[in-house]
Amino acid sequence: MRKRAKDRLPGFLLVLPSIILIAIFVYWLIYRNVATSLDQTVTRATKRVLNPGGLANYSKLLGDGEYQHALFNLLVLTVVFVAGTMFFGLLWAVLLEKGVKGEGFFRSVYLLPMAISFIAAGVVWRWLLSPGVGEQAVGLNQLLAMMGLERFQNGWWQSPTQFSMAAMAIPAIWQLSGYVMALFLAGFRGISEDQREAARIDGASEWQLYRHVLFPQLSPIALSALIIIGHMSMKMFDLIYAIAGQNSYKASVPATLMWTQLFAQNNPTAAAVNATILLVLVAIVVVPYLIYTSKSEKGTH
C-alpha cells in the first residue's frame, strides 16, 4: 500500500500545477460567473433596479423577446452549420479516400480556410454576403447574376424570413468542413484494407461496402465531429460580429447579445446570466458525450 502511494506521488506532483490552474481559471471562474449571475444590482446614482437578483434574473432574460429571438437564431445556425460541415466533410473525405491524384494538394486546399481567423474571414464574407440585389448586387449576388441565376439572389442573413440565420452558416461551413474532412479521413485510414477485400469477396457492392462496413466504424468519429462543431456553433461570436457589426437584430445570437450586455449596456450581471445559460446548453451536448467516451474507453481496457 505504502509503496503504491510512493509510486503515485511523482505523477501526482507532475499534474498538480495543471490541476491548480484549471481549478482556478476554469472552475473557480465558472463559480464566480454563476455567483455574479444571481446578483441584485441597482444603479448607484439613479437607483434604477437593473437586475432583480436570484433566479428572477434568469426568468427576466429567458422571458425577453430579444433573447428568445437570439436563441432561435442560434438553433437555426447550429442545425445548418452542423449538417453542412458533416455533409461536406464526409463527401470530401470519401472523395479523397478513393485515392485521387494530388491528394495532399486537395487536402491542404480544403483545410486552409481553417487557418484563417474568423474575424479576417468575416470581413470578406460581410462583402460576399451583401444583401443588395439587382443593380446593387455585389459579392455572391453578383456572382449569381454573372451565371444567369438572378432569381436566386437574396438578402442572405438579412432576408426577411425567420430562418435567415442559415446563411450565416455558409462562411462557418466554408471554414470548418475541411476540419471534419480531416477527422473522417483519419478514420478511413484506420480501417484495415483486409475488411474491404473481405467484403468485396463476399460480393458487396461499393455502396454496401460503405453503408455496412466502413460507415459503422466511423460513428465514434462522426459523434466527436458533431460535438466539436456543435459546441463551436453555440459559442460563435467573432464571425457574426465581423459580418453583422454591433446591434444587428437579424444576426443576434446569445453570444453577441452577451457582448452588448457587458460592454454597451454596462450590465455584467445580465451577461453572466446569459453566459451561464450558454454553458448549460453546451454542457447538455458535451457531458453525455464525455460519459459515453469514458464508458467505451473502460470497455476496451
Binding site: P160, S164, Q246, S248, Y249, T260, A264, Q265, N266, N267
Partner: peptide
Amino acid sequence: SLAWNTDISTAISKFYST
C-alpha cells in the same frame, strides 16, 4: 446613454428587415 442607444439601434436594425 450607451445602453439606451443600444436598444434604439437594435429596434432600428429590426425595422430595417421588417
